[in-house]
Design a protein around this nucleic acid. Structure first.
Length: 281
DNA sequence: ATGGTTGTTTAACAA
Protein backbone atom coordinates (compact mmCIF):
# COMPACT_ATOMS: atom_id res chain seq x y z
CA UNK A 1 0.00 0.00 0.00
CA UNK A 2 1.08 3.56 -0.63
CA UNK A 3 1.76 5.76 2.36
CA UNK A 4 0.03 8.93 1.23
CA UNK A 5 -3.25 9.35 -0.58
CA UNK A 6 -2.20 12.23 -2.81
CA UNK A 7 1.31 11.06 -3.68
CA UNK A 8 1.97 11.40 -7.40
CA UNK A 9 2.14 8.01 -9.03
CA UNK A 10 5.82 7.26 -9.48
CA UNK A 11 7.89 4.46 -10.90
CA UNK A 12 6.54 2.18 -13.58
CA UNK A 13 3.21 3.54 -14.82
CA UNK A 14 1.43 0.32 -14.05
CA UNK A 15 -0.52 -1.32 -11.28
CA UNK A 16 1.46 -3.80 -9.16
CA UNK A 17 2.10 -7.13 -10.89
CA UNK A 18 -1.08 -9.14 -11.09
CA UNK A 19 -3.33 -6.31 -9.94
CA UNK A 20 -6.09 -4.72 -11.94
CA UNK A 21 -6.07 -0.92 -11.80
CA UNK A 22 -9.59 0.55 -11.66
CA UNK A 23 -10.08 4.31 -11.90
CA UNK A 24 -13.19 6.44 -11.47
CA UNK A 25 -13.45 10.01 -12.69
CA UNK A 26 -16.21 12.56 -13.08
CA UNK A 27 -14.75 14.04 -16.24
CA UNK A 28 -17.39 16.78 -16.80
CA UNK A 29 -17.52 16.39 -20.61
CA UNK A 30 -15.60 13.56 -22.22
CA UNK A 31 -15.29 15.40 -25.52
CA UNK A 32 -13.79 18.55 -24.03
CA UNK A 33 -11.41 16.61 -21.83
CA UNK A 34 -10.28 13.84 -24.16
CA UNK A 35 -6.70 15.18 -23.92
CA UNK A 36 -6.92 14.76 -20.14
CA UNK A 37 -7.83 11.09 -20.54
CA UNK A 38 -4.55 10.79 -22.45
CA UNK A 39 -2.78 12.45 -19.52
CA UNK A 40 -4.44 10.06 -17.09
CA UNK A 41 -3.40 7.07 -19.19
CA UNK A 42 0.17 8.36 -19.32
CA UNK A 43 0.22 9.02 -15.57
CA UNK A 44 -1.54 5.94 -14.26
CA UNK A 45 -2.47 3.55 -17.07
CA UNK A 46 -5.76 2.26 -15.63
CA UNK A 47 -7.01 -1.11 -16.87
CA UNK A 48 -10.60 -0.04 -16.32
CA UNK A 49 -11.71 3.59 -16.39
CA UNK A 50 -15.21 4.49 -15.19
CA UNK A 51 -16.37 7.96 -16.24
CA UNK A 52 -19.29 10.07 -15.10
CA UNK A 53 -20.79 13.24 -16.57
CA UNK A 54 -19.64 12.41 -20.07
CA UNK A 55 -22.30 14.88 -21.33
CA UNK A 56 -22.25 13.14 -24.66
CA UNK A 57 -24.94 11.35 -26.69
CA UNK A 58 -23.82 7.88 -27.76
CA UNK A 59 -23.61 8.83 -31.44
CA UNK A 60 -20.96 11.43 -30.58
CA UNK A 61 -18.99 9.39 -28.03
CA UNK A 62 -15.27 9.46 -28.93
CA UNK A 63 -15.04 5.68 -29.06
CA UNK A 64 -12.28 5.46 -31.67
CA UNK A 65 -10.00 7.93 -29.88
CA UNK A 66 -10.44 6.01 -26.64
CA UNK A 67 -9.83 2.72 -28.41
CA UNK A 68 -6.54 4.17 -29.62
CA UNK A 69 -5.61 4.74 -25.96
CA UNK A 70 -6.00 1.01 -25.36
CA UNK A 71 -9.61 0.77 -24.22
CA UNK A 72 -10.79 -1.92 -26.63
CA UNK A 73 -13.88 -2.66 -24.56
CA UNK A 74 -16.39 0.13 -24.00
CA UNK A 75 -19.87 0.44 -22.62
CA UNK A 76 -21.37 3.92 -22.62
CA UNK A 77 -24.75 5.50 -22.13
CA UNK A 78 -24.99 9.22 -22.64
CA UNK A 79 -27.47 11.97 -23.36
CA UNK A 80 -27.45 15.53 -24.59
CA UNK A 81 -26.00 18.11 -22.25
CA UNK A 82 -25.75 16.37 -18.92
CA UNK A 83 -25.26 13.04 -17.07
CA UNK A 84 -23.72 10.11 -18.95
CA UNK A 85 -21.60 7.18 -17.72
CA UNK A 86 -19.03 4.98 -19.41
CA UNK A 87 -16.88 1.96 -18.58
CA UNK A 88 -13.69 1.81 -20.67
CA UNK A 89 -11.55 -1.29 -20.36
CA UNK A 90 -8.42 -3.03 -21.57
CA UNK A 91 -9.81 -6.36 -20.36
CA UNK A 92 -12.96 -8.02 -21.72
CA UNK A 93 -16.27 -7.38 -20.01
CA UNK A 94 -19.91 -7.55 -20.96
CA UNK A 95 -22.81 -5.35 -19.96
CA UNK A 96 -25.37 -6.51 -17.43
CA UNK A 97 -28.43 -4.79 -15.90
CA UNK A 98 -30.38 -3.03 -14.52
CA UNK A 99 -29.30 0.53 -15.14
CA UNK A 100 -32.45 2.63 -14.76
CA UNK A 101 -33.61 4.08 -11.43
CA UNK A 102 -36.60 6.10 -10.23
CA UNK A 103 -38.35 5.34 -13.53
CA UNK A 104 -35.91 7.52 -15.47
CA UNK A 105 -33.68 6.63 -18.42
CA UNK A 106 -31.14 9.23 -17.44
CA UNK A 107 -27.76 7.50 -17.86
CA UNK A 108 -26.57 7.41 -14.25
CA UNK A 109 -25.61 3.74 -13.89
CA UNK A 110 -23.83 1.22 -16.05
CA UNK A 111 -22.72 -2.23 -14.96
CA UNK A 112 -20.55 -4.93 -16.48
CA UNK A 113 -19.12 -8.33 -15.59
CA UNK A 114 -15.50 -9.39 -16.05
CA UNK A 115 -14.50 -12.81 -17.37
CA UNK A 116 -13.72 -13.93 -13.79
CA UNK A 117 -17.28 -13.06 -12.72
CA UNK A 118 -16.52 -9.80 -10.90
CA UNK A 119 -19.21 -7.17 -11.38
CA UNK A 120 -18.29 -3.52 -11.95
CA UNK A 121 -20.85 -0.79 -11.22
CA UNK A 122 -20.30 2.78 -12.37
CA UNK A 123 -22.78 5.18 -10.75
CA UNK A 124 -23.49 8.90 -10.93
CA UNK A 125 -25.80 9.85 -8.07
CA UNK A 126 -27.85 13.04 -8.65
CA UNK A 127 -26.16 16.15 -7.27
CA UNK A 128 -29.42 17.26 -5.69
CA UNK A 129 -29.58 21.01 -6.31
CA UNK A 130 -29.02 23.66 -3.66
CA UNK A 131 -31.89 23.42 -1.16
CA UNK A 132 -31.63 20.41 1.20
CA UNK A 133 -35.38 19.95 1.51
CA UNK A 134 -37.16 17.25 -0.54
CA UNK A 135 -40.48 19.13 -0.32
CA UNK A 136 -39.04 22.39 -1.62
CA UNK A 137 -36.54 20.92 -4.09
CA UNK A 138 -37.43 18.15 -6.54
CA UNK A 139 -33.75 17.53 -7.30
CA UNK A 140 -32.99 16.78 -3.68
CA UNK A 141 -36.01 14.47 -3.54
CA UNK A 142 -34.72 12.67 -6.64
CA UNK A 143 -31.31 12.30 -5.00
CA UNK A 144 -32.81 10.74 -1.87
CA UNK A 145 -35.11 8.51 -3.94
CA UNK A 146 -32.19 7.37 -6.06
CA UNK A 147 -30.00 6.46 -3.09
CA UNK A 148 -32.88 4.75 -1.28
CA UNK A 149 -33.72 2.72 -4.42
CA UNK A 150 -30.09 1.66 -4.58
CA UNK A 151 -30.18 0.76 -0.90
CA UNK A 152 -33.27 -1.41 -1.43
CA UNK A 153 -31.72 -3.02 -4.50
CA UNK A 154 -28.52 -3.96 -2.68
CA UNK A 155 -30.46 -5.26 0.29
CA UNK A 156 -32.32 -7.77 -1.86
CA UNK A 157 -29.31 -8.68 -4.03
CA UNK A 158 -27.69 -11.93 -2.95
CA UNK A 159 -24.08 -11.51 -1.84
CA UNK A 160 -22.95 -14.27 -4.18
CA UNK A 161 -20.09 -12.76 -6.17
CA UNK A 162 -17.29 -10.22 -6.01
CA UNK A 163 -18.45 -6.72 -6.85
CA UNK A 164 -16.86 -3.30 -7.30
CA UNK A 165 -18.97 -0.13 -7.12
CA UNK A 166 -17.41 3.17 -8.14
CA UNK A 167 -18.51 6.61 -9.09
CA UNK A 168 -19.44 10.14 -8.25
CA UNK A 169 -21.80 9.41 -5.38
CA UNK A 170 -22.16 13.15 -4.68
CA UNK A 171 -22.19 12.57 -0.92
CA UNK A 172 -19.29 13.07 1.51
CA UNK A 173 -20.29 10.78 4.39
CA UNK A 174 -17.72 11.41 7.12
CA UNK A 175 -16.76 14.53 9.05
CA UNK A 176 -13.25 14.31 7.62
CA UNK A 177 -14.62 13.98 4.08
CA UNK A 178 -15.27 17.74 3.98
CA UNK A 179 -13.24 20.85 4.77
CA UNK A 180 -15.69 21.90 7.51
CA UNK A 181 -18.23 19.49 8.94
CA UNK A 182 -20.04 22.25 10.82
CA UNK A 183 -20.27 24.62 7.89
CA UNK A 184 -21.49 21.91 5.53
CA UNK A 185 -24.17 20.30 7.68
CA UNK A 186 -26.82 22.20 5.71
CA UNK A 187 -25.06 21.99 2.39
CA UNK A 188 -26.28 19.38 -0.10
CA UNK A 189 -23.66 16.57 -0.27
CA UNK A 190 -23.09 16.44 3.51
CA UNK A 191 -26.54 16.72 5.13
CA UNK A 192 -27.41 14.03 7.71
CA UNK A 193 -30.37 12.72 5.68
CA UNK A 194 -28.19 12.05 2.63
CA UNK A 195 -25.42 10.55 4.70
CA UNK A 196 -27.92 8.26 6.38
CA UNK A 197 -29.26 7.09 3.01
CA UNK A 198 -25.78 6.44 1.65
CA UNK A 199 -24.76 4.63 4.82
CA UNK A 200 -27.77 2.34 4.45
CA UNK A 201 -26.91 1.70 0.81
CA UNK A 202 -23.39 0.71 1.83
CA UNK A 203 -24.42 -1.38 4.84
CA UNK A 204 -27.15 -3.23 2.93
CA UNK A 205 -24.60 -5.09 0.83
CA UNK A 206 -21.70 -4.92 3.32
CA UNK A 207 -19.80 -2.71 0.86
CA UNK A 208 -16.30 -1.76 2.00
CA UNK A 209 -15.28 1.87 1.44
CA UNK A 210 -11.76 1.32 0.07
CA UNK A 211 -10.69 4.96 0.50
CA UNK A 212 -11.20 4.63 4.22
CA UNK A 213 -9.76 1.13 4.39
CA UNK A 214 -6.58 2.57 2.86
CA UNK A 215 -6.66 5.93 4.67
CA UNK A 216 -8.84 5.75 7.79
CA UNK A 217 -10.33 8.73 9.59
CA UNK A 218 -9.36 11.20 10.86
CA UNK A 219 -7.17 11.71 7.81
CA UNK A 220 -8.92 14.20 5.57
CA UNK A 221 -9.62 12.99 2.03
CA UNK A 222 -11.08 15.06 -0.80
CA UNK A 223 -11.72 14.24 -4.46
CA UNK A 224 -13.53 17.41 -5.56
CA UNK A 225 -12.75 21.11 -5.29
CA UNK A 226 -15.23 23.70 -6.58
CA UNK A 227 -14.46 25.79 -9.64
CA UNK A 228 -15.64 28.79 -7.61
CA UNK A 229 -12.57 29.14 -5.45
CA UNK A 230 -9.91 31.33 -7.00
CA UNK A 231 -7.13 29.13 -5.60
CA UNK A 232 -8.45 25.64 -4.91
CA UNK A 233 -5.16 24.46 -3.43
CA UNK A 234 -4.82 27.41 -1.05
CA UNK A 235 -8.42 27.41 0.19
CA UNK A 236 -8.57 23.58 0.06
CA UNK A 237 -12.34 23.57 0.49
CA UNK A 238 -12.66 20.03 -0.78
CA UNK A 239 -15.13 17.20 -0.40
CA UNK A 240 -14.82 13.41 -0.88
CA UNK A 241 -17.60 12.79 -3.39
CA UNK A 242 -15.97 10.06 -5.49
CA UNK A 243 -15.84 6.57 -4.08
CA UNK A 244 -14.61 3.04 -4.69
CA UNK A 245 -16.44 0.29 -2.80
CA UNK A 246 -16.02 -3.48 -2.99
CA UNK A 247 -17.67 -6.51 -1.47
CA UNK A 248 -15.83 -7.81 1.63
CA UNK A 249 -14.36 -10.86 -0.16
CA UNK A 250 -12.11 -8.73 -2.38
CA UNK A 251 -11.42 -5.76 -0.08
CA UNK A 252 -8.32 -7.54 1.35
CA UNK A 253 -7.00 -7.75 -2.21
CA UNK A 254 -6.46 -3.98 -2.35
CA UNK A 255 -2.80 -3.38 -3.29
CA UNK A 256 -2.77 0.37 -3.82
CA UNK A 257 -5.06 3.39 -3.58
CA UNK A 258 -4.50 6.83 -5.09
CA UNK A 259 -6.34 10.11 -5.33
CA UNK A 260 -4.77 11.87 -8.31
CA UNK A 261 -4.93 15.36 -6.84
CA UNK A 262 -2.40 16.66 -9.37
CA UNK A 263 -5.14 16.32 -12.04
CA UNK A 264 -6.95 19.32 -10.49
CA UNK A 265 -4.13 21.44 -11.92
CA UNK A 266 -4.17 19.99 -15.42
CA UNK A 267 -5.17 22.43 -18.19
CA UNK A 268 -8.95 22.97 -18.25
CA UNK A 269 -9.43 20.54 -15.36
CA UNK A 270 -12.53 18.76 -14.19
CA UNK A 271 -13.60 19.82 -10.71
CA UNK A 272 -13.25 16.14 -9.72
CA UNK A 273 -9.96 14.20 -9.76
CA UNK A 274 -9.45 10.53 -10.63
CA UNK A 275 -9.58 7.99 -7.82
CA UNK A 276 -7.65 4.75 -8.36
CA UNK A 277 -7.64 1.32 -6.73
CA UNK A 278 -5.30 -1.57 -7.56
CA UNK A 279 -7.02 -4.88 -6.87
CA UNK A 280 -5.46 -8.34 -7.12
CA UNK A 281 -8.65 -9.93 -8.44
C1' DA B 1 -19.12 38.28 2.13
C1' DT B 2 -25.08 34.46 0.92
C1' DG B 3 -20.35 35.63 -3.43
C1' DG B 4 -17.88 32.65 -6.70
C1' DT B 5 -16.93 29.15 -12.06
C1' DT B 6 -17.63 25.90 -15.71
C1' DG B 7 -19.98 23.16 -19.59
C1' DT B 8 -23.61 22.68 -22.72
C1' DT B 9 -25.96 25.23 -25.62
C1' DT B 10 -27.03 29.85 -26.91
C1' DA B 11 -29.89 32.66 -21.96
C1' DA B 12 -31.01 29.05 -19.15
C1' DC B 13 -29.93 25.20 -16.65
C1' DA B 14 -27.09 21.87 -14.16
C1' DA B 15 -23.36 21.20 -11.27
Amino acid sequence: MTAAPYAPIEGPPKAPRGALRIATWNINSVRLRLPLVEKLVAAARPDILCLQETKCPDEHFPAEALKALGFQHQIFHGMKGYNGVAILSRVPLHETGPRHWCGLEDCRHVQATLVNGTEIHDIYIPAGGDIPDPDANAKFKHKLDFVRSQAAHWKKTKRDRPRVLVGDLNIAPFETDVWSHKQLLDVVSHTPVEVEALTAMRANHAWVDLSRQAFPEPQRLYTWWSYRNSDWRKSDRGRRLDHIWTTPDIAPKLKGFHILREARDWPQPSDHVPVIADLAL
